[in-house]
Amino acid sequence: MAVKGLPASWRKIPQRYNLIGDECKTCGERFFPPVTICPNCRRTGSLERYKFSGEGEIFSYTVVRAAQEGFDFQIPYFLGIIKLKEGPLVISQIVDSDPEEIDIGKKVKTVFRKVREDGSDGVIRYGYKFILDR
């Protein structure tokens, strides 16, 4: 069976597995997800690959109780906007955690997890999620 978005997922392996983003050598700002052009410097920007540590803290969060298609059996699940140590904000699930442990400012780190499965015969899409840095 042909699978939707296979090449698109494949292109994002460096980002989803290893948080590879960009650093603009002109202004010094770091970006994740990667940008196509430095929004500060535009034509004078100079983007280089930058690997983020995966460490950060919770900037905001929620518990999803009404899921999107494909996430039905994961409810309730935590989503967090994480402020990475190196600057950018990024969104993902916060897993293996109890509600009373989650709060703005709590330290987190990345783990490697399954994010989606395209049915039982489709591809598995892996990527970063966050756990509390206990």
């Binding site: 905001s60 969060y61 009404a66 899921a67 994961q74 699940y77 699930q93 703005i104 989606r116």
Partner: peptide, 24 residues
């Protein structure tokens, strides 16, 4: 869709996280 939806983000979730910051 690529950087939010992929991770199971819904619209209520996005606004919830905006609300949480506003509350904070």
């Amino acid at each position: 869709q690529k950087w939010e939806g992929f991770y199971g983000v819904t619209f209520p979730a996005l606004y919830a996280m905006m609300a949480r910051r506003h509350m904070y």
